[in-house]
Design a protein around this nucleic acid. Structure first.
Lengths: 250, 250
DNA sequence: GTCTATACACCGATAGAC
DNA sequence: GTCTATCGGTGTATAGAC
């Protein structure tokens, strides 16, 4: 899952060398983050970990922000991959869509939690306090990763329903303004969600994310090892509550 | 809502002076956090903002951590107060308990969100990336504040039900270990919650918190001003889904 | 491509004069 | 109680030799 694997022309020797060096730097940076947290990331520290001097790094990353952008992008990619894989292997092994029992959805949420708990500092990097003086490149690869993640959950949650069913999901009525805003949110997507379904997906995202954030950031330590069970139960309920709101096929 | 209002003996002149100075420092620190974020907090910066030198501050706070502890405690208190007030004024004006329609609960969650959105940096201070090299005093005032917050939501959610009803809440069965862990979690509390109710409260906490965190940390900016409406809808659904799981009185 | 050297900022904390 | 001075450390970034 390297960040820079474009299926382009074969790389020259110099380019290959450079790619190797970049990879080493990224690995060292991730190791440093894992140990000291995202806020403590500095080019000097990474250089120290590599036995290099700072200036060598400047040759590969023009600034700290550039390195950060690479790290953040890669983190999003890794998280999405983990969720994707959890959904696929946990979802009854069916090819596409959900088996109907929602096992894939619960597995996906557990994959999300598991990755976050296993990589707390990298999770903080993307979902913790926004880093000061760092502006993410707008509409960059992160936006794309978020879309992919959303697509996984969307498939697991709503894969078995028709557009009409989803449109008729029973939720408190949305204002016309909001519905209008949600409609063209992804005009290119053929499987665009009706506003009600989007609202349910969004709410569920917050639910899952909130439980994980509280755990990873240390606010639920009093629950010890039982957090996994409570998380699973919550996600089962979440799934049931969403499905209950979607009418049966006519 | 000052932090150091103990109902003790009347303060001497020296103590009053000191209290005023401490308050000024805390205010300046909060102003600095509001502008530059929690991570950028330093004694020097606060001193600059006050036109003092660093050493004057050391006279009131022996270290940066001491100042941080004060700030964090005050932040918890302020957030709880905001939620409490929202619950009271939004909850149909009844004296205690809930009016039965759950308006108080929704109002409390909206108070939580509103405070967080209005004070994003202070919210980050307590719920963002844990500050490195800062160890919160164990079992300190923050633990107490969390308990008070939990009590508010508990009252709004479960105030109208009997212990037996709450015990019979329909959720996927919890493991005996978890139930045992949850039982003695607050042995002193006469209104202790049954495990099933605690699980629902916990799940709801994560739900509410997750939506707020995503918003405050900038992950839902694509929704613009509609986030308030989506939040409200989510919390209404959350309330309905919890109540649906609690059986009617026999 | 990597090095030394350097400029210039920040920080927490302490010593000691007044 | 506030000051100056200072120590020892962090960091980003640049210039120029090799």
């Amino acid at each position: 899952m390297a960040v820079d694997e474009r299926p382009a022309r074969p790389l020259s020797v110099r380019e290959r060398r450079r790619a190797v060096a970049v990879r080493e730097i990224v690995d060292a940076a991730e190791a440093h983050i894992a140990e000291h947290g995202p806020a403590a990331l500095s080019l000097r520290a990474v250089a120290r970990g590599l036995g290099m001097t700072v200036q060598a790094l400047y040759h590969y990353f023009p600034s700290r922000d550039a390195l950060l952008t690479t790290l953040i992008t890669k983190t999003y990619d890794d998280l999405v991959a983990a969720v994707q894989e959890a959904a696929d292997t946990g979802g009854a092994g069916e090819g596409d869509g959900d088996g109907g029992d929602g096992a894939g959805f619960v597995a996906a949420t557990e994959g999300y939690r598991r990755w976050a708990v296993a990589n707390p500092e990298r999770f903080q990097l993307i979902y913790g306090t926004p880093l000061r003086y760092y502006a993410a490149p707008a509409e960059g690869p992160t936006t794309q990763a978020v879309r992919r993640m959303s697509a996984v959950f969307e498939r697991e949650l709503f894969g078995g329903y028709t557009y009409e069913q989803l449109m008729a999901a029973e939720i408190p009525p949305l204002s016309p303004e909001l519905s209008a805003h949600l409609g063209p949110l992804r005009p290119d997507d053929p499987g665009a969600l009706p506003p009600a379904a989007f609202a349910l997906l969004f709410s569920g995202w917050g639910h899952m994310h909130g439980l994980v954030v509280l755990e990873v950031f240390g606010h639920t330590s009093f629950l010890g090892e039982h957090r996994a069970e409570l998380f699973r139960m919550s996600m089962r309920n979440l799934l049931a509550d969403i499905r209950r709101r979607i009418p049966d096929a006519a």
